[in-house]
Structure formats: C-alpha cells, structure tokens
C-alpha cells in the first residue's frame, strides 16, 4: 500500500482524466451517437418491417376468409337456385300431368257422351227403320194373309192362343 501510494503519479492521473474526458466527449459526439442511433433505427426498422409483414399476413388471411365466405355464399345461392328450379320443374311437370289427365278424361267423357248420343240416335234411327220396315212387312203380310176369311180367323185364333192369361 505504502509503495503504491509512493508510486502514485498525479501527473499520469491528470493526463488520464483529461484524455478520458476528451475521449468520452469526442467519441460520444462522433461515434457513439451515430452508431447507437443507427443501431436502434435499424432495430426499429426491422421491428416495423416484421410488424407490417404480420399485418400483411393478417390482411391476407382476412381477405382469404372473405373470399371463402363470398364463395360459400355464392355456392349456397346457386344451390338454392338449382333447388328452386328443380322444384319448379317438378311442379310444372306435375301440373301439366294433372291437367293433361283432366283434359284427357274430359275428352274421353265427351267422346263417350258423343258416342252414346250417336249410338242412341243410331238406335232410334234403327228402331224407326225396323219399325217402319216391320210395319210394311206386317202390312204386306197382313194384306196377304187377310185376303181370305179363313186365314183371318186362323190368325186370330193363333194370336189368342199365344196370349197367356195371367
């Protein structure tokens, strides 16, 4: 300790203090300040770049989600439209079917009615024809048969024999 104190050089201390102070001030101004500022600036830059990248990624994700949603909506809409169209088609077909059926039935009815009426008319005509024919035949027969008395009586008798008394 004594030796150290003895060897202590205040001149060296003085110069060291002066040099150190000047060095700190000079380096602070010309080196540390620009270096540290640039380093922190760079760090900030990297940080913000990372942040913006993250933001971009998020936006992208959002965009993708939006796209997906829109796509899904469109798909759903298309599906409903298709479904509606199908239903409509089925309904139309069914309607047409029933109408056609009804129409057909009606036509058949009409045709039946027409046939019936035609048949009736034909029958009536036939009946008329048959009756007039039979009348003329009968007239001719009668004229023929009833030309003598005997034959007349015989007929009356026969007719009387056919008539059953109930």
């Amino acid at each position: 300790m004594e030796k150290l104190l003895n060897d202590f050089s205040y001149g060296l201390f003085f110069w060291q203090l002066v040099i150190l102070t000047i060095l700190i001030l000079l380096l602070a101004k010309f080196a540390w300040k620009p270096i540290l500022n640039s380093l922190s600036e760079r760090e900030e830059g990297i940080k913000s770049a990372l942040e913006s990248a993250e933001n971009a990624r998020k936006e992208m994700q959002d965009l993708q989600a939006d796209n997906q949603r829109i796509l899904n909506e469109a798909r759903a809409e298309r599906d409903t439209m298709l479904k509606e169209a199908r239903e409509m088609k089925e309904k139309i077909v069914a309607d047409a079917k029933t109408e056609a059926q009804a129409q057909g039935l009606k036509l058949i009815e009409q045709a039946k009615a027409a046939i019936e009426s035609e048949k009736n008319a034909a029958m009536a005509e036939l009946k008329l024809q048959v009756s007039s024919l039979s009348l003329s035949i009968a007239e001719k027969l009668l004229k023929d048969e009833l030309s003598n008395t005997e034959a007349q009586t015989k007929l009356v008798e026969k007719m009387l024999g056919d008539v059953k008394l109930n």
Binding site: L23, L26, L27, F30, A31, W32, P34, I35, N37, S38, L39, E41, R42, G45
Partner: peptide, 17 residues
C-alpha cells in the same frame, strides 16, 4: 479508438441498414 469508431460511425452515414 477514435479512428476505429468514427470509421464505424461513417458506415452508417449511408443509412442504418
């Protein structure tokens, strides 16, 4: 020291990156 670190400081003059 002064020369070393002013040289380092100079490289940042063109921008921090």
């Amino acid at each position: 020291l002064f020369l070393m670190f002013t040289a380092l400081a100079r490289t940042y003059k063109k921008g921090p990156n």
